[in-house]
Design a protein around this nucleic acid. Structure first.
Length: 526
RNA sequence: CGGGGCGUAGCUCAGCCUGGUAGAGCGCACGGUUCGGGUCCGUGAGGCCGGAGGUUCAAAUCCUCUCGCCCCGACCA
């Protein structure tokens, strides 16, 4: 293909709304063009990369025993009401009405539709297991779309769903899909990591995410040195922290801490280490107020907290409410003497503390020498800690490293969440009706291409992994006035190669700019 | 949804505070020049200043409303 016959108009200027490199470069190289917030056209060059990735994904899905189908983008509300997600999914669901005033939504994922298909056709354990996938455009009305294809509203995703009569069957499909995902990302030449994940609103028992490692990633993950443990920080647990030396209990003492509202300030003022502090944070959910105790130098993991409380909305309580519940201004909350309505949760890592410091629920006052049971009663102990770099790995494999990652794939063991709600059942060997076990497996197509750019570029442009490069070679004639070179040599080279050719005669081009842009068009760079 | 910002040429932006014939660079067209890594010179085309209303002799500029977009936060695969 000759460049001047192709639809390829590169630009030098960086569009002002493009923040991350992949977005900037994909706009500049004419791969994508924005149509509305979070909605893009895939121009020919970008579509080539998308199609190449899709081919890899199809190959690996088929190898893993998945069968391709295509489901509608528009879903009737009834299906979503059946699963209960019409209400749960909230504003992420783009809703619409047809001419008869019936409710529909643009599918953000297809558990409901695929479950509806399977429940009509499949009646017996003899027909299971089944593994179906599609590559299709989805829409999620993100609160804040950004970063080009990395977080669009309309996006292309490969989603697969499996149906089983036993956990063993689901486990083996899950494993097969896990391997397929690894093969896909390896085939793309990407540096990635599979991590344990929180399952979010999709729900289900276990789940793993596939993260492409890149500094601009929106997710944080921790990994042990050998990689034997890896998890999204939303879910990461840690090994036991070093215990402080045992000392005899001190008396509980209320001390003045005028104007010292942060742990760091109080620690300095009292000359005590921050590890010796218990920090009290007041959270509110749609149903209750909760005090969460963590070590002074640590942060609360709000995803773990949300899961533990089984609530829909969670946030730090408003200042006025904190004052009401603690009887003190912000900065002096503590677990001793809180209002009765407050449920007290403590992170397990503060359990070994002896003679700790905490807020006294009075202005400018803290306690020292506080101890569990004698002074402080806790309603529940739980793992509520946000893992940090340097924490011991839970499997004993040394200190955890912190990385940024782009979530390009997510696989879930759904259990019977959807099959039970939607009565997708089969008859087992004993003639009894059972809900099918399900798995679901997503892979972001556009996001993976964007992630490949995030991970492979320099100051001049993209350095494509060959399997995803739109073109593999770019032929340039360096003497634009030489007709023989332009038509003959370059033209001949272009034949039979999957490459982009020089514009050739016509408006004369200098080799410089073409080279600069060419690197992003084809993969070869020197 | 809360906070902040931006809509002026195809792109990136200046002009707005202090109202008075709409600008630059890049890109584009034409001519010349140069010729192995983003040449140089000249000429030219191109804008209902996001939209509506208001104030004014006069509005890109001031006021009101509206639409779109971006950033931070809450949220999220």
């Amino acid at each position: 293909m000759r460049w001047n016959q192709y639809y390829l108009f590169t630009t030098r200027e960086v569009p002002k709304d493009a923040e991350v490199v992949s977005h900037q470069l994909m706009i500049r190289t004419c791969m994508i063009r924005k149509v509305a917030a979070g909605i893009y056209s895939y121009l020919p060059l970008g579509w080539r990369s998308i199609r190449k990735l899709e081919a890899i994904v199809r190959r690996e899905m088929e190898r893993a025993g998945s069968v391709e189908l295509s489901m509608p983008a528009i879903h009737p509300a009834e299906l979503w009401r059946e699963s209960g997600r019409w209400d749960v999914y909230g504003h992420l669901l783009l809703r619409m009405k047809d001419r008869h005033d019936r409710d529909f939504c643009f599918g953000p994922t297809h558990e409901e539709v695929v479950t509806d298909i399977v429940r009509r056709d499949v009646k017996s354990y003899r027909q299971l297991p089944l593994n179906l996938y599609q590559i299709q455009t989805k829409f999620r009305d993100e609160i804040r779309p950004r970063f080009g294809l990395m977080r669009g509203r309309e996006f292309i995703m490969k989603d697969a769903y499996t149906f089983h009569a036993s956990q063993e069957s689901l486990d083996s499909a899950y494993e097969a899909m896990r391997e397929a995902y690894c093969r896909v990302f390896e085939a793309c030449g990407l540096e990635y990591s599979m991590v344990e994940a929180d399952s979010g609103t999709i729900g289900g028992a276990s789940s793993h995410e596939f993260m492409v490692l890149a500094d601009t990633g929106e997710d944080a993950i921790v990994r042990s040195p050998s990689g034997s443990y890896a998890a999204n920080v939303e879910r990461a647990t840690i090994g036991a922290l070093a215990a402080s030396a045992a000392t005899d209990p001190e008396p509980l003492t209320e001390v003045d801490t005028p104007g010292k509202t942060s742990v760091a300030q109080v620690a300095e003022f009292l000359d005590r280490p921050v590890e010796q502090f218990v920090k009290t944070l007041i959270y509110e959910t749609e149903k209750e107020y909760v005090a969460v105790l963590v070590r002074g130098d640590r942060e609360v993991n709000e995803v773990k907290l949300t899961n533990h409380l089984d609530c829909r909305h969670l946030g730090l309580a408003r200042e006025a409410k904190v004052v009401e519940l603690t009887g003190a201004p912000l900065g002096f909350a503590g677990p001793i003497g809180l209002a009765d309505e407050v449920r007290v949760l403590a992170d397990a890592t503060v359990r070994p503390l002896v003679n700790f410091v905490c807020g006294a629920n009075a202005a400018d006052r803290h306690y020292t020498g506080a101890n569990w049971d004698r002074d402080v009663s806790v309603d529940e102990w739980a793992d509520l800690l946000l893992a940090a770099a340097g924490d011991p790995s839970p499997d004993g494999d040394g200190p955890l490293e912190l990385h940024r990652g782009i979530e390009v794939g997510h696989i879930f063991d759904l259990g019977i969440k959807y099959s039970k709600a939607m009565e997708c059942t089969y008859t087992d060997e004993r003639g009894e009706s059972q809900p099918m076990l399900m798995g679901c497996y997503g892979l972001g197509i556009g996001r993976t291409v964007a992630a490949a750019v995030e991970q492979n570029h320099d100051e001049d442009g993209m350095i494509w992994p060959v399997p995803l490069a739109p073109f593999e070679a770019l032929v340039l004639s360096l003497d634009p006035d030489d007709e023989a070179v332009a038509r003959g040599a370059a033209g001949g080279q272009v034949q039979g190669r999957r490459s982009a050719g020089d514009p050739g005669p016509g408006r004369r081009r200098r080799p410089g700019p073409r080279r600069g842009q060419g690197g992003s068009v084809a993969t070869a760079r020197s």
